[in-house]
């Protein structure tokens, strides 16, 4: 049986949820998810993704101009990510998150990227929310397209 305070709580939550939905409808982009997707939209989405893949590919392969453009210093030794991970092999984005022995902690792919930047590459750790990080993540996951998710696997 529902008592009064539980009822009021549900009512309050419903009101908040309703307000959020109403705001999304009023404020959100007018065309978002309302019309069937068009080939033009798909192309744009794909281009937006592939542009990040391209940037990530360049960063991953030690491209100095791209690192400068995105304001990062991924290495001070001449070493680039791709020198241990050609074609982003052995990066295993599909195995994260997992306990990562080298860090002795439960880690995400972004944690691992930063570990590699700091340790083998002796570069400067990057903001996990930065465009550089997202681009690296985009390239690594794109390159592993087709790999089957095995989160947690050693």
């Amino acid at each position: 049986m529902i008592n009064t305070s539980t009822f009021l709580c549900i009512l309050r939550r419903s009101t908040v949820a309703g307000a959020v939905v109403a705001a999304a409808v009023v404020v959100g982009p007018a065309s978002a998810n309302k019309d069937p997707v068009t080939p033009k939209q798909l192309k744009l989405y794909q281009e937006a993704f592939m542009e990040e893949v391209r940037k990530g590919d360049l960063l991953f392969h030690g491209d100095a101009a791209m690192a400068e453009q995105l304001g990062v210093k991924l290495s001070t030794t001449g070493w680039a990510c791709a020198m241990c991970h050609p074609m982003a092999s052995d990066t295993h984005p599909h195995a994260f998150p997992k306990f990562q022995q080298s860090m002795a902690k439960f880690a995400t792919l972004r944690d691992m990227i930063n570990w590699c930047i700091e340790k083998p590459n002796q570069g400067e750790k990057i903001d996990p929310e930065s465009e550089a990080m997202k681009a690296l993540e985009a390239y690594i996951t794109w390159s592993n397209t087709g790999s089957v998710l095995v989160p947690g696997k050693y």
Partner: peptide, 16 residues
């Protein structure tokens, strides 16, 4: 090092 199976593909940025 292949205990985690992977499917990988060639890079693209050097061909653009």
């Amino acid at each position: 090092d292949k205990s985690i199976e992977e499917v990988i593909r060639p890079r693209i940025a050097d061909n653009q």
